[in-house]
Design a protein around this nucleic acid. Structure first.
Lengths: 359, 359
DNA sequence: TATTTCGCTGAATCTTTTT
DNA sequence: TAAAAAGATTCAGCGAAAT
């Protein structure tokens, strides 16, 4: 149980290396495990060129049982390494993702979403025997059902032009200048993932400074994006040749400044301001009348920060809920006061107070 | 081992009913099993309305082991009922699909594709705690690795306007007039699937006259589309109330003539809408007659989005060009359908679909 | 009659803090 | 630890009602 070897690439078996990391030390695990593709013969394109298939040793397993045992081993260790509120991402294809998903459920992980990476430029199905395999699947899971993993909802919403982010992400595959090549011009790794994919994962489900563990580091896409976004990483990679490429790649990454790493945050993270403080500070006066957002109800402010309406008295939220016959009500946006004859939500006053607190 | 009860709905437990069907008798199994959602409390929208959740008994299982046992049971019987070259489709969400996928692999099924149904209009994530769950997953599998299941590659390609069909299908959820309601106006079934989804499945992976078994028949979407496309079906449904709705629904479907069921065997900035999508979504029906803009020529719509005229068959553009003896023809403005007795260009339908996509 | 507004709803594992 | 209170949160499509 050594200390976390931050921002380094460990070479060797991922299960042993994970086992050596301290329990409950990682904020996120991102894993791109072998897909167990089980390819048979060669595949040629209609123009007779040969498809450069994934035929590496690390993707070969004797049978499903062997793949399952391997999956159970690394997922168990990953779970141990995660903090209680940590998150897990795994990417895969139909060859392996169902087994991975079932096993992680069996281990106690709680699936939050499955996300589909829809490729804008997938390889076609050359033989016309199946649908063009145009997507891969990611699973996002928490360590347990009652955990509270990081989710930067507002930031992702901004990333999607003001609409909440969906479970289907349209992104091109990794090619062109981003694709790492060896000196002979051959691709350095057969399954390099696009940085845009990791950008969305890391931006959406970690905070700056968080520790991200990647047990199948490959050529270090996770490390590259983590560094760029001001996160820490621990990479584990079986093959020294990939680890070497990854280290050089990450060294050349420049970090964004702190300011650009901050993201839009939710209201929940803002300081709490009790309604009574507005009265206390004379921003609203006892006896002043508030009107509901729909204009149908009125209530009077009392000196202790409660409201009183026809038949109900209580907090701004409780009175709003009861007047509307609703299970709940956000009093801050529901109630309005009059300023120059126009109705203004009392939330505006709260914002004034908050601004004062931070300045 | 009785004979196949074609075009009927059997009421009762699907495992027992499947067990009573003859071995190797079905060309396709389409299954929409319970998802095992495991919902906890109520969920309200931001406007405080209550989400009508799937809380039916048939979706309740004690634990994963119980769900797995159920899944193994019906999948085993489904496999027995299938012909050697038969196909299997299962639809699910992240709650159950990983378990279903792993179990079907364990039983010897060979996965051909996983297909993602990307919803144009999913329910949002109201609490902002996750990604909007905007898709469901289908698995397409053969009975074994060396089987040769039906795949109408060219027909699907035509349906996608000349580009091979991908593993991500963009379709709206089942709503509006297609959604079955009881006399009180409540939805007849909580999880009715859109006919367009079944259209693509059945058109793509069966031949006319084939037998399709659906062990979770519900209100009979599979039967309805099967009948419309000239296929046979055997439906199994646990609840008599759903079976009754399904029978009435299917009785009201009219079958198209044989010719229109045969399929092909071998404005730039705006989103491309393949003509086949209009058929898939039932905006035009197979067998429906189109008239040329000058009234001189007629053609019939086929199920895969091609047209058939006197001596020509092919895309809307190709048939138009050949009938006119022209080098090319914009089929969108050339062909008209009848609405209230008046000819309307099919481009009008395309505009409806586009408006849906972009609004 | 055409257009706008408003309400309703869809397979959903959907909160956080204080008392 | 359980209960109560605070308070944060939605997109697209359809259809009825209102203008």
């Amino acid at each position: 149980m050594s200390k976390l070897p931050l921002d380094t690439v460990l070479v060797g078996d991922c299960v042993s290396h994970l086992a050596a990391l301290p329990e409950g030390s990682a904020d996120l695990v991102f894993a791109d495990p072998p897909y167990n593709l089980q390819l048979r013969g060669d595949l040629h394109r209609p123009n007779n060129s040969l498809v450069d298939a994934v035929d590496d040793d690390w993707d070969k397993f004797d049978n499903f049982a062997a793949y399952d045992a391997f999956t159970r081993a690394w997922l168990s260790e990953a779970r141990r390494v995660l903090k209680p509120d940590g998150g897990l991402w795994v990417i895969g294809s139909y060859h392996n993702i169902f087994r991975v998903g079932a096993i992680l459920q069996d281990l106690g992980f709680w699936i939050l979403n499955d996300v589909v990476w829809r490729k804008t430029n997938p390889m076609p199905n050359f033989r016309g025997k199946r649908f063009c395999n145009a997507h891969e699947t990611l699973i996002w899971a928490a360590k347990s059902e009652d955990a509270k993993p990081t989710f930067n909802y507002e930031a992702l919403k901004e990333l999607n032009e003001g609409l909440q982010m969906r479970s289907d992400w349209v992104l091109p595959i990794c090619s062109g200048g981003e694709r790492l090549k060896d000196p002979e011009g051959q691709k350095a790794h057969p399954t390099q993932k696009p940085e845009a994919l990791l950008h969305r994962v890391i931006l959406g489900t970690t905070h700056p400074g968080d520790v991200i563990v990647d047990p199948f580091f490959g050529t270090g896409t996770t490390g590259s994006v983590a560094k760029r976004l001001g996160r820490k990483f621990v990479g584990i990679e079986r093959e020294e040749r990939y680890a070497r490429v990854a280290r050089a790649r990450i060294d050349s990454v420049t970090v964004h400044d702190r300011e650009s790493l901050s993201v839009t945050s939710s209201k929940r993270s803002e300081p709490r301001v009790p309604f009574g403080h507005l009265v206390e500070r004379n921003l609203l006066r006892p006896g002043e009348e508030l009107v509901s957002v729909n204009g149908r109800h009125r209530a009077k402010v009392r000196a202790d920060g409660t409201l009183i309406a026809d038949r109900y008295a209580g907090s701004i939220h409780k009175v709003g809920a009861e007047l509307e016959g609703a299970p709940s009500c956000n009093g801050w946006t529901y109630w309005h006061f009059k300023r120059d004859g126009k109705p203004v939500p009392i939330d505006w006053l709260r914002q004034q107070v908050r601004a004062e607190m931070t300045s």
